[in-house]
Each structure stands twice: as C-alpha cells, then as structure tokens.
Nucleic acid binder design. Structure first.
Lengths: 241, 241
DNA sequence: CCGATCAACTTGTATATACAACCAAATTCA
DNA sequence: TGAATTTGGTTGTATATACAAGTTGATCGG
C-alpha cells in the first residue's frame, strides 16, 4: 500500500480504465486488456485487477463474457437524469425565475448517517447549508446539504444566493459519480414551514450523494412539494445484455 | 463444487441469510454471524462467505461496518432509475417472492391522455390491464397499463399471472426507448383499496411510456406505497444510531 | 473441403494466508 | 475515579494459487 496518492490499488486501476474510456482511447464495444495483462502492467495480483473490472462492470462501464474478454459498454444516458435534477437549471429552462434563499450556512458535528456517506468520523466537523429554491416567488424545493470539508475547504466562504451549491461544487470538484434515492414522504416540520405546505401534502425527496475524483464530496436531501414538482427523464435502451 | 443442488457455494450462503431475514429470525438492524463464523458453519473459506455478504450488501439486504459487524438492513423495496427494470425482476433480485394478481384485462375506449401518448384517436379501442404486484404477500405496486392494439394485437389473450406484461411486451415488441415521470401523490380510491394503505400515505407514481421499433407501445401508471418502495441507484446509507 | 479435436486464452469460483484498519470493551495506571 | 492503553474481534485489502467453464482459432484427419 505504498501508492504515491495513498489510493487503493484497485481504485488506481479503475481510474486508469475510466480515463481511457472517457477520452475514447478505448472506444465503445472494444476489448480491453485481460485481467492478467492489467495485473502485470500495474504490478498487482490478478484478483486485485479483477476487482477493478468487476466494480466497473457493476457501474455499467464495462461488460464481460466468460471465455472471451472485457469490453467497453455503451454509455448509459444517466447524464440526462442526473442533470435534470439541478433545480436551478430546470426552472430557468422552463423560462421561469429562480431565486435561492440561504437559511443556514455553518459547520456542525457530523451526524452518523452523513459520516457514513462521506467517509468521515462521527461528530467530525462537516459543512452544512440549508437553502430554499423558489420558482417565480413560490417555494419549490428545500435543499439540505452536507459537504466534506476535506474536499471543499472553503465552502463556508461562498455566496450561495448568487451561485448555487451545485454550481460551485461542479466547478471545484467535478462530478464523476452520483448515487440517489427517490422517495415519496410526508414533510417534517422544517420542510412544511419553508415550502409553505400542509402536513398532508406528499413530497418527493431526493437523497443524493456525489463523488469527485478525490472521493465523496457532498450528501444532500432535496425535498419538493409533490403538487409543484415532478421528475422526468428519457432513457434509451442499449442491447448487449 | 459438488453441492447437492449444484449451486455455487456463495449462493448457498446467500440463500441461507435471505431465509433468515425473510422469516424475521434475524430482525432489522440485528447483527448477523461474522464472516469467520459463516465460513466455519458452511465449511468454506472466509473469502467465499465474504462474497455472499458483499453481494447481499450491494442488494441492500445488509449493511456492514468495519470493526463492528454485518447487520440486517431495512427491507424497503428499491428499484433502479438508471435501468429499465420492472418490479418483478427487482423483487426477485432481492430474493423475495413476487406474485401478480390480475384485476382487470379488457378493451376500452381510449382516454384523451392515453390517445396522445400512444398516437391513437380518442375513444379508439385500447387494451387495458390492471395488475397488483405483491412482494412476499404484501401489495407493493398497482400497475395500470394501456397497450397499443396496433403494435400488440394479441395482448388480451395473455396470462399475466404467470408472465408479467413487461416480460411479454419485451418479447413481442423489444424496448428501444422509454420516457418517465416520477411524482409524489396521494392515492386515489382504487389505489388505496388494492395497496391496502390509508388515504394519507404518500405514493410514488411512475408514469412510463415505452417505445419499440414500430412506435409507442404502452403507457402505464405504476403506483407504489411510499413506505414500501423507493427508486434509486445504489445508495445505501444505513443509520447505526 | 469439412468436421472433429486440441491448444491457448479468458473469465468464474474457491481456497489459504497475511496484514491493515477499525471499533468496542476490558484492563491498566495515574 | 477517570483517562489512557491493551486486547480481541470484525471487516477491508491484497497476494498467490488452483482448477472450472467457456470461447476462439489453429491443427489434424477423413
């Protein structure tokens, strides 16, 4: 484990493969080096190289066939789904007026769930922002975001009324990956107040964790009133199961 | 590899753990045997037992903490946004029991919204199916589906208890494209009855239009109880509290 | 020419081992 | 008593090895 970057060995190989795929040095459906070749090239055991390939397969970057090899998969149209969820862009795309109201911006001890998500120790300081997004003066979404101080040390110095956290983080720590959960829930007290909705109004809650090259960057709850917001997307299906 | 069932060893362990979880012999958030204990118990190496635990973790059945142990996760159903995966596959992938109950299967005059979506004339005959999907005897999703008779003329002749509409349509009219809308709504009377939920329970409604080579094939409302279902990628954050 | 066989290579499964990282509880020590 | 340390257990990473299972292409024999 004497990597210069202190990175895990299989992660190094993942990064290498991802860079080859992103730059199209390895085009779609082309065969990539075998487990043994990668193992030799990186000076690791086959099982370690194998692990990198397996994780990329689960992420949909590669597909593998026993006896044949590993290949570059078609890029999933996940980007459309991911981008569409940037609430500010979405509002402006509809030609409406977007306003962000900063309710809170502080550093606080990391709750357990967030610690797990960001890879921090519990109660370690974590940056927190609470923002209400308006569409034409009507509150639309409540954004509660926790940010990893190791990745974005100057988060508290930003002005999130002029620039949304999403915009700022995109510039500072380019998004490489995102995980998300969409749920239908009833609003808690805080949400009710800021969105100005009754307790019986169902809400769409998007829980989202984003990654950059350096690791987990932020963890956010994005809660919207069900009557005012919905999530849409378009998917193209790729063969080669 | 001389299992009596011809099954892979790690799959045997997965089955064992799943049975314990399903019968609630191992309740939520309880600790399960360690890797070493399972390895000894099943007479396999630790790495093999470990693999079973890892796959169950990826499926959301377990969560693990270094230095502490492996625990039973909350059983909320979860489906992937990034892949067009139907509810039946999703349930089976979690190792649970799926049952479909056919409530209605008929031809009716096409409502306006559906006519637009499928490119039919208003009040032209359209095929309609109403199905309740169960996960382990609990109603999970109500599927109301309109099917284009020009694309799939023998839809009404199918047995949708043995084969889901999604499976049948995939075979007859291979999916090339899909559009989604995700919303949080309160259930209508029909949904309440079939999902056996109170009127105040928020629901996640997925409206989906699918296309094949020939054009628009089907238009469906997939409504699930918010407390039992969520939509997401691989985000698995579990509170240890 | 064609089919069968074989050899080489790839991914899949499984084992045994070692050490690192981490946590919780018991123990020790001031 | 209370803080620091130790200890034992657990998951995480990595290696080396072996064989199974599957595909491909070359070789051989009719």
């Amino acid at each position: 484990m004497d990597n210069s970057a202190g990175q895990k060995k299989f992660a190094t190989i993942k990064d290498y493969i991802l860079s080859q795929v992103e730059t199209a040095a390895w085009p779609e459906h082309s065969r990539i080096p075998s487990e043994n070749e990668l193992a030799t090239q990186f000076g690791v055991s086959r099982m370690t190289a194998r692990r990198a390939l397996q994780e990329l397969t689960e992420q949909g970057v590669l597909y593998r066939t026993q006896g044949v090899g590993s290949f570059v998969a078609s890029p999933k149209s996940q980007s459309s789904l991911l981008e569409i969820r940037n609430i500010a862009d979405e509002i402006q795309r509809r030609g409406h007026f977007h306003k962000a109201e900063l309710v809170q911006l502080t550093s606080l001890p990391c709750p357990g769930v967030v610690a797990t998500a960001l890879g921090l120790s519990r109660n370690a300081p974590v940056f927190f922002s609470l923002i209400v997004h308006y569409e034409n003066q009507q509150p639309l979404q409540l954004e509660a975001r926790y940010v990893n101080p190791e990745q974005v040390p100057d988060y508290l110095a930003q002005d999130f009324v002029l620039q949304t956290p999403h915009e700022y983080l995109s510039a500072v720590a380019p998004l490489t990956d995102a995980e998300h959960i969409v749920e239908a829930v009833l609003p808690d007290e805080l949400t009710r107040q800021h969105l100005k909705i009754p307790a019986s109004e169902p809400c769409l809650r998007l829980t989202r964790r984003t990654f950059s090259r350096g690791g987990a960057v932020s963890f956010a709850y994005l809660t919207s009133a069900g009557s005012r917001y919905r999530l849409g997307g378009h998917l193209t299906i790729h063969p080669k199961t």
